[in-house]
Design a protein around this nucleic acid. Structure first.
Length: 617
DNA sequence: CTAGGGTTAG
């Protein structure tokens, strides 16, 4: 295959390491638009329950009471001047307080000072310092501190190793984590306890090894280390994220009924999240009820935020707003995550005034928008073709000291393509790469789709061939984009070849692939072949939907082939499908031209969705 | 008296 070196993005993609991209894939969940009557009752359920909030706090010493960084430094300065020095315990309490304020580098600074002035640092101090390193994704420095332990005759313990294990896992260094875990057991450097097992379980889950994680859960139990709610919740959450909700409930039931461990708000929240992702609203409602029935637990800000997000993704922002009202009534303060979801909900509906008003009000609520918040706005502006406003916000990200993420770039690339600004796409793509961001599968799809829609199908195809037989190209969406692109510009042979390649690669065409291919065949007047493919869908395990029916009908109407039209309409009526706007306008066109009988109007009328009626009226 | 693990957004 000839490679045109001057083609758009060609050069940049050539330099990519495809394995690296595909290893860090992010899939965006598709939002469904199903009507969900249960949300309203769900909201009222939340409304009717009484509120419970923070309990009493234990008395804290002066060293633990620190709420501001300055106080900590002042106290520390005071402490090191005292003679004799306060006990290491007091220092540790201070370090711990600073850690809880998330000031990890300051904590490390204080730790170093302690060493300098001769505080006899112990395992507690070491472990806090190591934890700070790990929290800042500097686990290697944590290991360096482990070396210091040996030099200072401080004996590392199971806390030390759990912290380091967690650090490796946070940095996605799963192989090293496994190696460390095995080494600790083999060389009897420490006896793993429930926390260490749970940490390793988290690592396994993070890399999709749910089965091995469950195996480790069994193993710890056999070894006399009883799994607790953390161990169970970690796996339950992971199963939920992988949409294996039945397995999650199996484990949940085992935990509750066989082990007698009471679930808490986090366990419930994970399950609710999993059910929301699968649009299983009845069960969400049931689980919320179950949770509300337990006096020990009530939904917290995260539970609420998940519900807000789920409502917004369904386009039901009214309910999302209602949930926010309820949480406020219950004394929870919505945070930036909660509001970002709502902003995203407005943006998805193209309600940019509302989105922007809320966005602008965040500062007065004491909240700082982050790159996710910005990305939602970018998306909204791009989808409503307000590209200049989107670019303005995109530049504001950097001005506010944030770094645009791959998602922000992807959104802008897509927006620029939508308005045909291919040159600017190229510039932004280069900028993204120069920022060290690696294009992901979404970038790839956006570029292919953008090229196809901007009369650059050849470039899309050559990019596709350049990427070659990689994970990026083992993607049904990529194929669907190219099949559509090729057939729309008259390259039906290429579209057919691509469609054929699917089976060779073991990829299953989905309902959109079929729709695009059928549409392509109809465009060339190949109605028999189109009909054949249409009929093949069922036996290929991909049942037709409303869209495929519309596509085939349009093909028939455009080619003035009316034999099967009534039959198709009748099936559609039987399945409660409806006609989309373009199919309907073709019908009206053909009927007014006299090529179709008016008697069909009654059937057609039944197939016009109410929303379309409203817009026509 | 002080140290380690599980849930939220594009």
């Amino acid at each position: 295959m000839m490679i045109r070196t001057n083609s758009l993005l060609h050069h940049a993609f050539f330099k990519l390491n495809c394995n690296f991209i595909t290893n860090s894939l992010t899939t965006t969940p598709l939002s469904s638009s199903r009507f969900t009557p249960h949300f309203t009752s769900l909201a009222s359920l939340l409304h009717s329950t009484s509120f419970s909030n923070n309990g009493d706090r234990p008395l804290l010493s002066r060293y633990q009471k620190v709420t501001k960084l300055d106080d900590a430094f002042n106290l520390f300065d005071e402490m090191i001047l005292r003679k004799p020095l306060p006990s290491v315990i007091k220092f540790n309490q201070l370090l711990s307080a600073v850690t809880k304020l998330n000031h990890f580098s300051s904590c490390l600074h204080l730790f170093k000072q302690m060493c300098v002035v001769g505080v006899p640092v112990d395992a507690y101090s070491m472990n806090i310092a190591i934890k700070c390193c790990c929290q800042m994704s500097r686990t290697n420095d944590g290991f360096a501190l482990l070396g210091c332990c040996f030099r200072r005759a401080v004996v590392p313990n199971v806390f030390t190793f759990s912290t380091l294990l967690d650090g490796l896992i946070r940095e996605d260094r799963i192989l090293e984590a496994e190696r460390l875990f095995k080494k600790l057991i083999k060389q009897k450097l420490c006896e793993p306890d429930v926390v260490m097992y749970s940490t390793m379980i988290k690592g396994l889950c993070k890399f999709g090894n749910n089965d091995i994680a469950i195996g480790l859960l069994r193993l710890m139990d056999e070894r006399g280390c009883k799994p607790d709610i953390y161990a169970y919740s970690t796996i339950i959450d992971s199963l939920c994220k992988d949409k294996m909700i039945e397995d999650a409930f199996k484990l949940f039931n085992e935990m509750v009924f066989a082990k007698g461990i009471q679930p808490d708000v986090i366990t419930y929240t994970s399950l609710i999240h999993g059910l929301c992702n699968l649009c299983r609203w009845d069960e969400v409602s049931k689980l919320l009820k179950e949770m509300e029935g337990d006096v020990r637990i009530s939904p917290d800000i995260q539970t609420f935020s998940i519900l807000v997000d789920a409502f917004c993704k369904e386009g039901r922002v009214d309910e999302a707003e209602a949930v926010i009202d309820i949480m406020v009534e219950r004394g929870e303060v919505p945070n930036i995550v909660t509001y970002s979801s709502l902003i995203d909900g407005y943006c998805l509906r193209g309600e940019m005034i509302k989105a922007r008003t809320l966005f602008d009000s965040l500062t007065s609520k004491g909240l700082v928008p982050n790159v996710v918040t910005y990305s939602s706005l970018l998306n909204g502006y791009c989808k409503t073709f307000k590209i200049e406003e989107a670019l303005k916000m995109f530049h504001e990200i950097t001005r506010k000291g944030l770094k645009p993420s791959i998602v922000a770039y992807n959104t802008m690339l897509q927006g620029l393509f939508m308005v045909g600004r291919c040159g600017d796409v190229r510039k932004l793509f280069d900028e993204m790469r120069s920022q060290g961001l690696i294009p992901d599968e979404c970038t790839y799809r956006i570029i292919l789709d953008g090229l196809c829609n901007n009369h650059k199908v050849d470039e899309a195809l050559s990019l596709f061939h350049l990427v070659g037989d990689s994970k990026l190209n083992s993607d049904i969406v990529v194929y669907t984009i190219l099949i559509e692109g090729a057939s729309k510009c008259g390259k039906l042979d290429i579209a057919r070849d691509l469609f054929h390649d699917l089976t060779v690669k073991g990829l299953q065409p989905d309902v959109r692939t079929y729709a695009v291919m059928i549409s392509g065949l109809c465009r060339e007047g190949l109605l028999t072949e189109a009909k054949h493919l249409f009929c093949k869908m069922d036996e290929s395990g991909c049942p037709q939907n409303s869209v495929t029916y519309n596509v085939l009908l349009q093909g028939y109407l455009k080619n003035q082939n009316y034999d099967d039209v009534v039959m198709l309409l009748q099936v559609m009526d039987g399945r409660s499908y409806s006609l989309d706007a373009s199919t309907l306008s073709l019908f009206i066109d053909r009927i007014s031209a006299g090529s179709l009988d008016r008697s069909m109007l009654k059937l057609i009328g039944k197939l016009v969705p109410k929303e379309l009626m409203d817009t026509l009226a």
